[in-house]
Simulated scan of single mutants.
Amino acid sequence: DAVISAGGDGTFLDAASLISPISGTGHLPLFGLNTDPERSEGRLLMNKEGESIESAVQRILEGDYTRLNRQRIHITIKSDGSPLGSTSPRSVTMATSPSHAHATHHPSPQTTPPSTCYPAAAVEKRASSEDGQMMMWMMLSHRPLNDVMVAALEAMPTVYCEVKVDDREPERQKHSGIIICTGTGSTAWAYNVSKVRPSVVEHVLEAFADSQSSNPEAQSAIRQALSNGGRDMVDEVTEAVNSTLVFDPEVPLLRWTIREPIENRVFQVSKSSGHAHRVSVRPLSAPLYLFLDGLTTIPLNIDQTAYFTVDPQDALHTAL
């Protein structure tokens, strides 16, 4: 009738990965119990600091909780050539631990045998294109709750891929990877990658004041604000900017972020982040990998395209 996870946010993400509409378990609610609320923030869990597990369990039995239908990422992979589910030339990886909702770093992957290729694959469809070429489509049963990272297997190689967001024209880009998150994941890794620091805001405000030589009144007001209690002003602007990165876990939207885009005469990124209903990524020079909630790693070859969407029917039924 229900699934209960006992541990931290990582355990919750692990349990969530097993609940899927494809396997017939999508209707099951997931209750998360924090076994160490004094040392674990437990953003996804019922009992925070000051509440015991016993109290949370009692609330479950009495129905005294707030229901939250958290949206998840629906992933479909289209292949124009290589068979879906085949072993990649490189070993597939499994992350050492899930990407916690409050983590500041994504876990580093470790190499495991290639037999773990497509462990989350559940449905494969075939269809012919208009020119008669056979294409293969596969949906993944693992619906990431937090985020998906699209990157190279190692940290150093530059990612060269084609990215398409909603109905915009596709762009060929170079960068260190793409993070695609839900509202739940917008407070996790994606947030820590995108947030601005107070020191950066202070530097921008100082530079802006210096640029207002033609408007001495505005220049004086900014400099005075920075010198007299300027920390409050910096913190206020920092909070205002960072608050735009977080959105409701129940909203059927994705947020995408390009990490460290390379921009020069040849390559340009028209927009490095934003909200979308659909994002697609196609490798152009070397295979990439999809890191799902830090739990599962899926290879993406250069003749394959990954599509990321949100389907409200995939929502995970949780409680706080």
Rank of each mutant, 00 (worst) to 15 (best):
R231A: 07
V251N: 13
C181P: 01
E171Y: 08
S213L: 10
H203T: 15
F267A: 08
K195L: 09
E263F: 04
A276Q: 10
E171D: 12
S273F: 11
E217W: 11
E260A: 07
S270E: 09
R255Y: 15
D235A: 15
P283F: 00
S214V: 01
S270R: 13
G274P: 06
E260H: 07
A221Q: 13
V279C: 00
A188D: 05
V237R: 03
V246H: 05
E206C: 05
W189D: 04
S176Q: 14
P252R: 13
N228I: 12
E250R: 07
S211A: 11
S186F: 08
V246A: 06
I179T: 10
N242T: 15
E236R: 12
R265Q: 10
P283N: 03
S176N: 15
Q268D: 07
R223I: 03
L253K: 15
W189S: 03
T187P: 01
V234G: 12
F208L: 14
V251A: 13
V204Y: 07
P170G: 04
P249H: 08
L245P: 09
E239K: 09
A225V: 10
N228R: 06
V200W: 05
G177A: 06
T238V: 06
G229A: 05
H275W: 10
V193S: 12
F208K: 14
I180S: 00
R223P: 07
R168P: 06
F267P: 01
C181L: 07
T257W: 10
A240L: 07
Q224R: 10
N192M: 02
S270G: 14
R265E: 15
G177Q: 05
E171Q: 14
K174D: 04
P249C: 07
A276H: 14
G185D: 06
E217F: 12
A221N: 13
Q224D: 14
G274T: 03
H275I: 02
V201H: 05
L253V: 10
I178N: 00
E263M: 10
V196L: 04
R259F: 02
N192P: 06
R259W: 01
S243V: 14
G177W: 00
Q268A: 12
H277C: 02
E239Q: 11
V237E: 08
K271E: 05
V204G: 11
V237T: 05
T182D: 05
V266D: 09
